[in-house]
């Protein structure tokens, strides 16, 4: 069936709730309203208010409750309305969800998913455009996933729900309704921790994720150079092998992310490329990112957001080095 990303995520949630009675959905307005982006639409009618839980407005409470549910045999999928509100969950995610497996030597685990819309590019309200995946990716014990297409979203979310560890699932707001593609109605899984080669090429490797993937595809469509595009899918634990192996062949790498540059995931990816492929590199790893500024309000957003030309310029710089 043709689905956009919202429908694909909804389909993954419905499939997993159908398959496993321990899967529950909780968050603000996820029930009768179907979530502010309608991602959970219809679930409450099918699975009832006890499993599709409209919670009080309290991100830390939602997350802490989900952690407790996971201790006691449930597989909660908690929704945070926007990534900008997820900082209230950090105490729970960092001090509890991420550590519990280690601190009980595997006796108590936290198989939960914390879903949230993420990223800019839709001229949204203040605090609705952040991409702070690096905050979570720094925490050992957490997994951080960003899907790039509807099909990917269905497969990755299904795997995230079944994963034995806590997963931060970041849904690019810009991609929610951007494109439709064929997504299987039934079960579909994409393994976590494995990057995807979107297109093969010989001259340069471009690494991105989420809403950057379609942007990269458009940016390189008419380039002379042969570009390999890698969709990282999992920010942490990162599949550096796929990236490093690709760069060993192409000798050049560009990392594209919409998060600010400093201390961003691009720095970690570049580091791993240097560690794994320095002798094959023909040029320094290029970073195409947002500047290190606060995400502007809608009128100024274009000064912030990565565009096709910036990606082409980055590729050009590395090719000419």
């Amino acid at each position: 069936m043709m689905m956009n990303m919202v429908q694909a995520i909804n389909s993954a949630l419905a499939m997993e709730m159908e398959r496993d009675p321990s899967v529950v959905v909780l968050g603000e307005d996820v029930g009768v309203d179907g979530g502010v982006f309608r991602v959970t639409e219809g679930l409450v009618d099918k699975y009832g208010e006890a499993r599709v839980i409209d919670t009080p407005l309290a991100e830390s409470g939602i997350t802490g409750m989900a952690i407790g549910m996971a201790f006691n045999g449930l597989r909660p999928v908690a929704e945070i309305q926007f990534m900008g509100f997820s900082y209230l969950t950090l105490n729970q995610m960092i001090n509890h969800a991420a550590r519990m497996r280690n601190r009980t030597r595997g006796r108590i685990t936290v198989p939960m998913v914390l879903r949230m819309p993420y990223g800019a590019g839709v001229k949204a309200l203040e605090h609705h455009s952040e991409s702070t995946e690096a905050l979570y990716a720094q925490i050992p014990g957490l997994k951080v996933i960003v899907p790039s297409t509807p099909l990917e979203a269905k497969g990755l979310l299904t795997s995230a729900i079944r994963d034995p560890d806590p997963v931060i699932f970041l849904e690019p707001t810009r991609s929610y309704r951007m494109l439709k593609e064929e997504v299987p109605d039934g079960e579909y899984l994409v393994p976590l921790g494995k990057a995807r080669t979107v297109q093969e090429g010989d001259d340069v490797t471009v690494v991105g994720w989420g809403a950057m993937i379609p942007l990269i595809q458009r940016a390189v469509a008419n380039l002379q150079a042969s570009v390999e595009i890698i969709d990282l899918r999992t920010i942490s634990p990162m599949d550096s092998e796929t990236v490093v192996e690709s760069v060993k062949r192409t000798g050049r790498a560009v990392v594209v992310h919409e998060a600010p540059r400093s201390f961003g995931p691009g720095a970690e990816i570049a580091s791993r490329i240097y560690e794994g492929a320095i002798l094959k590199l023909e040029a320094p790893v290029e970073r195409v990112t947002a500047p290190d500024i606060t995400v502007p309000l809608s009128k100024g957003e274009d000064h912030y957001y990565v565009n096709e030309q910036m990606i082409r310029d980055g590729i050009e710089r590395t090719l000419r080095f």
Binding site: S60, G61, T63, G64, M65, A66, I67, G68, M69, A70, F71, N72, G73, L74, P76, N91, Q92, N95, H96
Partner: peptide, 12 residues
């Protein structure tokens, strides 16, 4: 920070 955990456990 354990208080919401207790609520989640009880909910389950």
């Amino acid at each position: 920070s354990q208080i919401p955990h207790a609520v989640g456990i009880a909910y389950a």
